[in-house]
Design a protein around this nucleic acid. Structure first.
Lengths: 360, 360
DNA sequence: CTGAAAGCGCTTACAG
DNA sequence: CTGAAAGCGCTTACAG
């Protein structure tokens, strides 16, 4: 007896919650209960103000009482709007991408959309196939660092509302970090610390980000009369970073900037394993402020921007396009800043050949 | 002229790709082209074998030629199956959750489902509200570490096919790590290293995982004649870990196990900042093998299990339930193992009071 | 094996 | 302001 009472009082919000039953409540049920036509219910629940205030309220009350939820698919059929947004990503290695996803999701929800997450193999054709597969079921897409070429991308965007992140292509709305600013600041910092020769570790494939960062490193170095040396990596991971260590050392550079933090972390590990002290003998600057860049010893100096903002802005841009179709493609640039941590230092021990050259 | 040729050859797969046009191809278009009824098209494309081999092939050919894609919403309406699965997560701080998401997505795709990701505020009612909002649009749900009570969970699962991860509740299908095994191994390892007093840093709220780990630490310590001391944290993050350092030291324990790796990392940082050497003066064992646990110095010893398997198994379980409704609730236990890294060591410098006690 | 028909739950001109 | 009707694209008994 008392047990029954207890179980009854344990979950009152469930017992009382409207329509616990599995049966689906439709607008016809509401129409019936309210004594109006289903179309009136549709109007009352949808475009407000097209219905008499009294009926409006009556219908709304009945709807909540019955626990009515619009069937999104039934709605999608006549309207063509699914209120689903797709986020398509390749092989994301960087864990800070979780921020992008999380913020994209919450922003989508705030706009009344749901986010469907789709992974795609890292190959242009697969990417296109994935998009084809998915696009019929969503109102718009966000493409993270897509591999397809510019023309394919533009072709796609004629077909489907779409926003690209971490890549800028003429004619396509996108969200990218302000690479130039970040790199310039980083290079300036290195110069002030006496560095004159900087290595740049690029990503395996020529992603927009890697290419962009490399170009800006080149540019910034030229501007400040420094030498820049490009060093490719095999993969944009910690392991890939380790593998570049030899080449980085062999390059004769005293500082190195990598196109992402994982590379920087791997590089640091490998250098330390070879007793090459960081930053005394090699300064390291990462890019992206990945989770984990503060766990290293020394902590990693890196070019940071708000990854969450990437997700938020991408969704906002997409929703904007969806709402007012015909919006011109817009590029959102996210501010970057250099976070100075322990991995960079003064270049004191100029190698002798440098002085020799100076005498030439 | 040559430029035109070039642009034409640049993206042949696009030019040739079937139905580049935006217009939607329906089964009626195919039916018209094939000279059959739409219902026949539906059968040919859907349940195979219910149509003459010749018509079958004819229809399939026309379908691919026209670039037909089934409209998932039109299908969902009569069948009630959306081929959408929801993954509902609270405030996920651990970046290794990206593995869960990624594997869940790819497994869902392999089964012909798409994954919709939904974040929810960390409060039982909000959680339930989120589920209510979402459940009409998906075939089933995966709940990551939900906050609602057991009864609410069971109530929900009557309503909607659902699988829970990182929590075990009687009557609910779930995927959890084998906590007992991992903790036992860890404690045994500590004992063999001479430790006799172990602190356990729990999560802020009593998540199933934290509670479970704590209980097993207690149990394992009793079994091996060791002392276990529980220390709550304010939040299950790096910062939260830092804040527990004082209490951990004050506890007199020589080793500490935390309910996740972030706590362990923060704790290590704070101890080191106070010149308390790890592992010489304090051994640390994490839980979860989070990204970043290998970036610390020393690297973190932790209880690991395959996070990706969590996502994979959860989806498999859910799809299994969806396919054969009426399957009994099943709990999948993922194997765990202790990964020994530098953060644990021998307890050599037994404090004097220990010896004093021994003489008592 | 195939066609004609009804229906899934909603929206939206079109009348009134 | 409201109702009756048609239609979104598909599926599935039901006949034949």
């Amino acid at each position: 007896m008392s047990a029954e009472e207890e179980s009854a009082s344990l979950a009152p919000q469930i017992q009382n919650s409207p329509n616990t039953a599995t049966s689906k409540v439709t607008i016809y049920d509401i129409a019936h209960a309210a004594g109006v036509n289903a179309s009136t219910v549709s109007r009352a629940l949808g475009k407000k103000g097209r219905t008499a205030p009294r009926t409006q309220k009556l219908i709304e009350d009945i709807a909540t009482e019955l626990g009515y939820r619009v069937n999104p698919f039934a709605r999608a059929l006549p309207t063509g709007r699914t209120y689903l947004l797709g986020l398509i990503v390749g092989n994301v290695v960087d864990p800070s991408f979780l921020d992008v996803i999380r913020c994209a999701e919450s922003t989508a929800t705030a706009h009344g959309y749901n986010l469907i997450l789709v992974g795609t193999p890292e190959a242009p054709e697969k990417e296109i196939a994935t998009i084809q597969r998915i696009k019929g079921g969503v109102d718009g897409l966000i493409l993270a660092d897509p591999l397809m070429c510019d023309d394919q991308l533009r072709e796609m965007s004629r077909d489907t509302p779409l926003v690209v992140i971490d890549r800028q292509t003429e004619g396509i709305p996108c969200v990218v970090p302000d690479v130039k600013k970040g790199v310039r600041e980083a290079i300036r910092g290195l110069r002030e610390n006496g560095h004159r020769k900087v290595a740049f570790v690029s990503g395996a494939r020529d992603s927009w980000m890697s290419t962009r960062i490399g170009a800006e490193v080149q540019d910034a170095c030229e501007w400040s009369g420094m030498e820049a040396i490009g060093i490719p990596s095999r993969e944009p991971t910690v392991e890939g970073g380790r593998l570049t260590a030899r080449n980085v050392v062999a390059s004769g550079a005293t500082a190195v900037l990598t196109c992402n933090d994982l590379l920087a972390i791997g590089l640091m590990q490998e250098l330390q394993a070879a007793s090459i002290t960081v930053p005394d003998r090699m300064s390291i600057v990462g890019f992206g402020d990945a989770v984990g860049s503060v766990y290293t010893t020394p902590q990693l100096t890196t070019v940071r921007w708000n990854r969450g903002q990437t997700g938020t802005n991408a969704i906002n841009l997409l929703v904007e396009i969806l709402d007012a179709s015909g919006t011109p493609a817009r590029a959102v640039h996210l501010d970057t800043e250099v976070v100075i941590r322990g991995s960079i230092g003064r270049q004191n021990n100029a190698p002798s050949w440098l002085e020799v050259e100076a005498h030439d």
